[in-house]
Amino acid sequence: MSEKSFQFTIEPWSVVLENKKYHTPIFNLLQRKMRLEVKDEKNEGDFYVLEAPEWVNVIPVTKNNEVVLVEQYRYGIEQPTLEIPGGMVDPGEKPLDSIKRELVEETGYESANWSSLGKVSSNPAIMTNYTHLYLAEECELIASEQPAGDEHERINVHLLPMDKFLDFVTDGTIHHSIMVAAVARFLLKSKQEARS
Rank of each mutant, 00 (worst) to 15 (best):
Y73S: 05
I178D: 06
P95R: 05
Y22C: 10
Q7W: 07
K33V: 14
E106M: 05
K164S: 10
D150S: 08
I99K: 07
I126R: 02
P85M: 06
I155D: 01
S98P: 06
K4R: 12
L30V: 04
A125W: 06
W114F: 14
A112P: 00
V61L: 04
K39L: 11
V183E: 02
W55G: 03
D163I: 02
S177L: 10
F6R: 12
M1H: 12
L159N: 06
E145L: 07
Q31A: 11
N28S: 14
S5W: 15
P95F: 04
E93K: 10
F8E: 07
F165G: 04
I26Q: 00
F165V: 00
T9N: 13
A125T: 03
E153K: 06
T128S: 15
P60E: 03
V183S: 13
S111L: 03
S98N: 03
T128V: 09
W13G: 06
N28F: 03
I10N: 15
N64C: 02
P91Q: 06
F47W: 14
M179T: 10
F27W: 07
Y73L: 03
S14Y: 12
K39R: 15
R32M: 11
E11M: 09
F8D: 03
K39E: 13
V89I: 07
S111E: 05
K119Q: 11
L141A: 09
L36R: 04
A148G: 00
F165M: 05
E41M: 08
K42Q: 02
V120W: 00
E151R: 14
E37K: 14
N64R: 12
T131A: 01
N28A: 05
N64K: 15
N113Q: 08
R195N: 02
L103Q: 07
I59Y: 07
E44D: 06
Q79T: 08
I99H: 04
R74H: 12
E78H: 14
V15A: 03
L187Y: 05
G108M: 15
E106N: 03
I155R: 13
F47D: 04
D90R: 13
D90Y: 05
N65A: 05
T62G: 05
F27M: 14
L36D: 06
S177G: 01
H23M: 01
I26H: 06
Y48M: 12
P91M: 07
T24F: 02
K42M: 03
L135A: 10
S177V: 14
P53V: 05
H132W: 13
L133V: 14
N123A: 09
K164I: 07
N28M: 05
Q31P: 00
I99N: 09
P95T: 04
P25I: 01
E18I: 10
E3F: 06
D46G: 03
L96P: 11
L29F: 00
D163N: 13
A148T: 14
G149A: 08
A143H: 09
L135P: 03
E105F: 11
P95D: 13
D97W: 09
M88K: 10
D163Q: 13
V157N: 05
I10A: 14
E37D: 09
G118F: 01
Q79A: 12
V38G: 10
P60H: 07
K63P: 00
E71I: 07
Y130K: 08
F8Q: 13
E137P: 00
A194E: 14
V58K: 07
A181L: 01
M127C: 04
